[in-house]
């Protein structure tokens, strides 16, 4: 464990808290992409299969929180707050993301075992899972401030993992090119969003695309 990874994980927790807080206080999931949320649940379920055969207090607890909160968000979106979700603006074609991640996972896993292939699939899928959400924001041209805080916190999580990987490489405990490439791609996808977030939201203005 190092400070970057811990901070990254905390940002991840904060993003989930912001998302659930937004939905339960406003009793609405408007502006949130159901498709991105469904992809995240798929990411967590396929990556954290090792809950069944490994236990570490910190990691196992976080894994259960991520799977559980993700399932809870989907429950809110399909149950109580379903009327506030507009599928007409959530139209990103996720089959290409799932298909692409599946192909990469089958071609280049570290080992050809079901658990390793699913783990690799989850790494690639996570790197692009935010795209339906960003696409939705782009389509509507604006987002609620709370939604932008959520996207920022989620992006900051993977961005903070990059210095963590550099640190682990330098202390030579860890060198996983797959995670690193996917993590960098994931952070790059957020870069436009980060820029607008810094220049607009943090100066107290509304998130609106130029």
């Amino acid at each position: 464990m190092n400070i970057f990874r811990l901070a990254g994980d905390l940002f991840h927790l904060i993003s989930i808290f912001i998302l659930i807080h937004k939905m339960t206080t406003s009793k609405s999931c408007s502006g949130i992409s159901f498709k991105s949320q469904a992809l995240y649940l798929l990411v967590y379920v396929t990556r954290y299969l090792d809950l069944f055969w490994t236990f570490a207090l910190y990691n196992s607890t976080m894994k259960i929180i991520f799977i559980g909160s993700s399932a809870y968000v989907l429950h809110l979106m399909t149950g109580p707050f379903k009327p506030t979700h507009d599928p007409n603006i959530d139209t990103f074609k996720v089959r290409y993301l799932i298909g692409g991640a599946a192909i990469l996972a089958l071609l280049f896993p570290y080992k050809w075992t079901p658990a390793e292939v699913l783990w690799t699939f989850s790494i690639w899928l996570e790197s692009v899972a935010i795209l339906p959400q960003l696409f939705m924001v782009q389509r509507t041209g604006a987002a609620e401030t709370i939604t932008t805080h959520y996207i920022f916190a989620l992006g900051a999580y993977r961005a903070l993992y990059i210095p963590n990987w550099i640190y682990r490489y330098l202390t030579s405990t860890f060198w996983d090119p797959l995670s690193i490439i996917a993590g960098v791609i994931q952070t790059v996808l957020y870069s436009d969003f980060f820029y607008i977030y810094y220049t607009k939201v943090l100066q107290g203005r509304k998130f609106e695309l130029p």
Binding site: T54, A56, Y110, Y161, F174, W175, D176, P177, L178, S179
Partner: peptide, 10 residues
């Protein structure tokens, strides 16, 4: 250590 992922991250 390439490809030896200890799977100790989230």
């Amino acid at each position: 250590k390439v490809g030896v992922n200890p799977k100790d991250e989230l």
